[in-house]
């Protein structure tokens, strides 16, 4: 696997971790290339109200490759938006399309429902990875995720 795409909830957990907690994102940063999209970055920035707070959240975002919008995603976004029964709206379609086109599984706890059932999208439950006891087990769990077809 070439990397993973972190949803907003995983990044928020990192920034708000208590001193005695080991957030999943720390473990992932030491294990696999970590990406997110401009949407998650924008959501994180939206919580900041001044330059000091923006610098605080940037400390986490500096470590991630932030995928930007590209016309190459347009067809996949359109396919997902037009899929019968899809409920997630534009955000879901854009993030899912970027993950599919980039070959990255999405790691989240909070967005499992909206991403569930999207063809071609690999989804990893963050809480499952969190339960792995050590670095080797986390790497093994990530290695068992099927590669993009």
């Amino acid at each position: 696997m070439k990397g993973v795409l972190l949803e907003t909830d995983v990044i928020v957990e990192y920034l708000t971790a208590a001193p005695d907690e080991v957030p999943l994102m720390r473990r992932l940063l030491g294990t696999i290339s970590c990406c997110t999209t401009f949407l998650q970055a924008a959501e994180i920035y939206s919580a900041a109200r001044d330059d000091g707070e923006r610098r605080t959240v940037e400390q986490a975002l500096f470590g991630l490759k932030i995928l930007g919008a590209s016309s190459r995603y347009a067809k996949t976004i359109a396919l997902l938006l037009s899929s019968e029964g899809r409920m997630g709206g534009h955000r879901t379609a854009i993030v899912a399309a970027m993950a599919i086109e980039s070959g990255l599984p999405v790691i989240t706890d909070d967005h499992l429902q909206e991403f569930g059932g999207i063809s071609g999208l690999r989804l990893i439950e963050a809480s499952t990875l969190r339960r792995t006891p050590d670095h080797a087990a986390l790497a093994d769990a990530l290695a068992t995720i099927e590669p993009a077809g």
């Binding site: 920034l15 971790a17 001193p19 907690e21 707070e53 959240v57 986490a60």
Partner: peptide
């Protein structure tokens, strides 16, 4: 890594 827990409490934490 210094960003870990950088917003562990306060208003920013609540908004995040």
């Amino acid at each position: 890594l210094g960003g870990e827990g950088a917003a562990a409490s306060g208003e920013l934490a609540a908004r995040l």
